[in-house]
């Protein structure tokens, strides 16, 4: 609500001492997520969309749009593209420094870009229609509607759900000449559309917050003010770590670091089966 990032020393001390004894200010245990709501197909004009709201705080809306794009010379000839953008809506960030909002937008966009482009999650090669000519381009646009801590985890949950919900039209490819030239038609039947190849390999994130010699998940906004450092670990359904990213201004002792990497998505989140087969 009316927090401007200000917090009193007594509040910080109260919250941090709570971590040490394992009782958080809102009564949760250290490894307990807040209740979250997940809605699919919330934007009818998109190829797929989802909204994830955690607690009564962070609220992220993700829309995926699928379009045909040209493969330009110099680009990888046989891969489709994923373009990400994350934006905190102005209505949530009015209390912040304008630069802080810009920095956060950029940080999240780059993070998501790395998550979706740089490893074998979405099968980019299957998004190629005709090599050196045409491919599918997936625009993944996330809008942060409200902020109450733990943005990374909520964002990735919403993105995974939106990709699960996305349908790509089928194409009909035919050779037009003897020289191997090809053309294609997009089949306009929604019944014929296919899921995003490899959506199930897109990871989810668990952010571990390091504070007062211990770590906890799913920080609320106030708790984030009391955290020394955050470690975001994204894990896919095979238990592989797809990305690690530390943020925050503090350091994490080497001793606890390996232990922090052993997150198990299902235990932490309690993900619905359909989304985490």
């Amino acid at each position: 609500m009316a927090t401007t990032g200000l917090i009193s020393p007594a509040e910080i001390n109260y919250i941090r001492e709570g971590f040490a004894v394992g009782i958080r200010a809102d009564g949760r245990a250290l490894r307990q997520y807040r209740e979250y709501l997940l809605g699919l197909d919330v934007i009818s004009h998109s190829s797929g969309s989802a909204r994830c709201r955690i607690g009564f705080g962070t609220d992220v809306l993700v829309g995926v749009k699928v379009e045909v794009s040209n493969i330009e010379p110099g680009e990888v000839p046989n891969r489709g593209k994923v373009v990400c953008n994350v934006e905190c809506s102005p209505s949530t960030t009015q209390n912040w420094d304008s630069r802080a909002a810009d920095e956060l937008n950029n940080e999240l966009t780059q993070f998501l870009h790395r998550c979706l482009n740089d490893y074998d999650g979405i099968d980019l090669e299957k998004l190629c229609i005709i090599p050196n000519q045409s491919c599918w381009i997936l625009y993944v646009d996330a809008l942060v509607l409200d902020f109450g801590g733990n943005l990374y985890d909520t964002l990735l949950m919403a993105v995974r759900a939106a990709l699960f919900n996305t349908r790509i039209p089928k194409v009909h490819i035919e050779e037009t000449g003897d020289d191997g030239e090809k053309e294609f038609d997009v089949i306009d039947d929604p019944e014929e559309a296919e899921p995003v190849p490899g959506w199930a390999d897109v990871p989810l994130a668990v952010t571990l917050n390091w504070a007062n010699q211990t770590y906890f998940v799913d920080a609320s906004e106030m708790e984030e003010h009391c955290t020394d450092a955050k470690l975001t670990v994204t894990v896919n359904k095979n238990g592989h770590i797809c990305a690690i990213q530390k943020s925050g201004l503090g350091a994490i002792p080497q001793k606890v670091y390996p232990e922090m990497l052993t997150v198990r998505i299902r235990q932490e989140w309690g993900v619905p089966l359909a989304l985490w087969p």
Binding site: G39, R51, R53
Partner: peptide, 15 residues
């Protein structure tokens, strides 16, 4: 995947 596994589509409206 059966439809029973699908997450609820409209939890926001219900809430």
């Amino acid at each position: 995947m059966s439809t029973a596994d699908l997450p609820d589509l409209a939890p926001f409206e219900q809430a």
